[in-house]
Write a protein that binds this DNA or RNA. Sequence first.
DNA 1: TTGTATGCGTTATCAA
DNA 2: TTGATAACGCATACAA
Lengths: 337, 337
Amino acid sequence: MGVTINDIAKLANVAPSTVSRVIADHPSISQKTKDRVRALIEELGYQPNYQAQSLGSNTTNTIGIVMPDSTDRVFQNPFFPEIMRGISNIAHDKSYEILISTGTTEQEIVESVKRMVQRKRVDGFILLYSKMDDQVSDYLRSKKFPFVIVGKPDKNIDAITHVDNDNVQAAKETVDYFIKKGHRQIAFVGGDPTQVVTVDRMEGYKLALQEANIPLREELIIREKSLREGGREAARELMKLDNKPTALLVTDDLIALGMLTNFAQNNVKVPDDVSIISFNNVLIAEMAHPALTSVDIQVFKLGYYAGDCLIEKIKNPEEPHKRVIVPFKLVERESCK
Amino acid sequence: MGVTINDIAKLANVAPSTVSRVIADHPSISQKTKDRVRALIEELGYQPNYQAQSLGSNTTNTIGIVMPDSTDRVFQNPFFPEIMRGISNIAHDKSYEILISTGTTEQEIVESVKRMVQRKRVDGFILLYSKMDDQVSDYLRSKKFPFVIVGKPDKNIDAITHVDNDNVQAAKETVDYFIKKGHRQIAFVGGDPTQVVTVDRMEGYKLALQEANIPLREELIIREKSLREGGREAARELMKLDNKPTALLVTDDLIALGMLTNFAQNNVKVPDDVSIISFNNVLIAEMAHPALTSVDIQVFKLGYYAGDCLIEKIKNPEEPHKRVIVPFKLVERESCK
DNA sequence: TTGTATGCGTTATCAA
DNA sequence: TTGATAACGCATACAA
């Protein structure tokens, strides 16, 4: 068996409760005994048993991560490892552990989350997505269980802490950028239309066109659910058009990569025939050919701040709901002219 | 407070221990009381408190995941989300939860793992990498703590359960395939040389050349640590050569993608000037242009089986160490002729 | 087949 | 400033 708090107590000639207080750095313990006890702890390599500590204090020091449901191969989007890296960093800094939800269908995920709260497995959750009518989010809200959304909640914005980019503005500025370069026929290629981020970016797209008095052409708006086939499919549709677009706003680097492939096969030159700007600025954006001009939404920071907000909220449940906006930045490469 | 085992016991007119046994589906409880108790459990939505259950039974029902250290942007390799998906699936099937290690440097990761075992946070680990002289692996072995390696251990092969492909054979067959297509100048572009998988694939490469009586040219062997720059750098080096290779065996789709980009920029035609076959067969392999012929190592299964082995080992520690080999398959696309 | 009593390793309350 | 002692919620050895 491992060494327990009692072992330390005996050797230090104090009560177990005293040792417990030393661990928690309780102010009412004299420096002298603190030192003595700590020396013993160090010497014996004592580590408090997690389950016991957790049972006694009714807290878990762990963060639950909820992934989107993984029909399609969305997880292969480098977005996820990158945001996990951000969360992992802050978790490590604050001595929190990370538990990830299992389950692939929405129903399985909801069950998984419910079990985790009822069994008290985590102190709070980070949702790595934001979509319409999300059951997980509704459930957590009804239970008043701490959680943070990465992205913008589709409702109750002021009642849910979230970390997001200003996607409306990001899309708008990108289209402005196209316009300034002389483009007039600008298409929008978006991912899953039930995701809030897609909606936001489309809004920015429309806003920019409106301001510039460019008529909206519905056939230039394409929404693809599949990351895998999405890009190629979208490229096909767009190229069938009589009056082809000269610029493409694409909401995901991976979709843009698919489009690039289709264009290469059909001898459409990027950026000579069409310019492309995509979102996320993930590693493959710079590896693609031509390298993709992409909006860097700072995925790592999204994760880091989400973790930070959640931990704050856990420690102080009275804390008002917050909204953290991570700045974006257009990274110019070769796919746009 | 939530509903506890005592609440159920009172309402069912039995002792708490009986309820506990019903939950564990203990054989010595009559069907009648089982039914009655279960009905109440269902009705009240009772879920056992995790910490208490864990403390009482000295087991956690959770799997720890150890990632490689993340200098460079290795995590952006879709390999990781995909293998996590496999582990997540089996974990969900077997009612296990997943805790992932935090920490970015090797030292931090080792500390994190040590804490997790001492504090009894998990029942076992899956290591998502295999490299030379790994401290984590050494530590777990010394503690006789259950763990499974994805890949081939660099030593003590028979004493460590691992799930792997036959990478020597996979590389050999791939080179054989090149040779059959008439290639003689075949280059090997590998990732991190401290990783066992790189070593294995190189061995297969050498073996095939030897069998075919093709002299080994050291300058055709390139090893790149960085996924990011690796591909482009390797392409540059190879194209400087007087006697250029006509075929490339590349150990990672992402590196191959980088090479593709460099070739496109320098007007090297794939597959007309060089053929490429890479490993992993991750989503971007089929999205690239030209689509990459790639060795599918079935990453999902790698994860699924690793989880399965670990859980078996946890349930029966006496179980002998196993070696599970997941078959590979060459997926032919456009990058090779 | 079921109940009683005790232990698991902490935290926290109340005294001293 | 510290020490007893009672939770915390469940598992299990032993009794019945």
